[in-house]
């Protein structure tokens, strides 16, 4: 599984950073940054799913 964060849609609610800090970091402006561009290690998949499901702006998508 891969994550894709659309920086143009993200408004910095920081839900992803709170729920999946291994997958998402946050910059000095409070905008989310993706830590992992490659295939996610399988142990992080559940947390990445949780982050995507809680982003109020629908900025995170997951692909197989």
């Amino acid at each position: 599984m891969r994550v894709h964060l659309d920086a143009g849609i993200c408004q910095g609610h920081n839900r992803c950073y709170a729920l999946a800090p291994a997958v998402f970091d946050v910059d000095e402006y409070g905008q989310a940054v993706q830590r992992i561009d490659d295939e996610l290690p399988s142990e992080l998949e559940a947390r990445a799913r949780l982050a995507a499901a809680n982003c109020p702006e629908y900025a995170i998508t997951l692909t197989d």
């Binding site: 920081n14 000095e28 409070g30």
Partner: peptide, 8 residues
Amino acid sequence: LLPPFAPK
């Protein structure tokens, strides 16, 4: 205003 209110 974003930097002073960012999580860190």
